[in-house]
Amino acid sequence: MLDPMTIVILAILAFIITYMTVTAMRSRQEPLKKKIIVTQLKCSSCDYSEKREFKEGDYVGKEVGKCPKCSGKLLVEAIYLEEVEGIPELRSAVSIPKSSQPQKNTGKY
């Protein structure tokens, strides 16, 4: 039969070990959010628009070809970072920059 003081000390020890383990595990968990840089193209003459993965050399306002619908100028309308879930055809995407991922404050020093 354990005396009450031993039980208290064991409980404190168990609490400390659990707390430290949980804190360490939390700090290791990193959210797996995948994002991709998207180039949005738009025809200057009609309402045609499409999205594709960003290619080096793209910039907003750049003429990238002819519109498949009306042969008008196809221009880069926008370039931005978007979550992959929204664009199934682009799932092979690159990962989000580290700094854009939310970071958890572990409170450890």
Binding site: Y59, V60, K98, S99
Partner: peptide, 22 residues
């Protein structure tokens, strides 16, 4: 923690400038 986060952001920003991304 804030300083390292800012430094990481600056480092990541270099990719945007290298590729000319807005």
């Amino acid at each position: 923690q804030q300083i390292v986060k800012l430094a990481k952001a600056y480092d990541d920003a270099m990719d945007s400038f290298m590729k000319g991304i807005p």
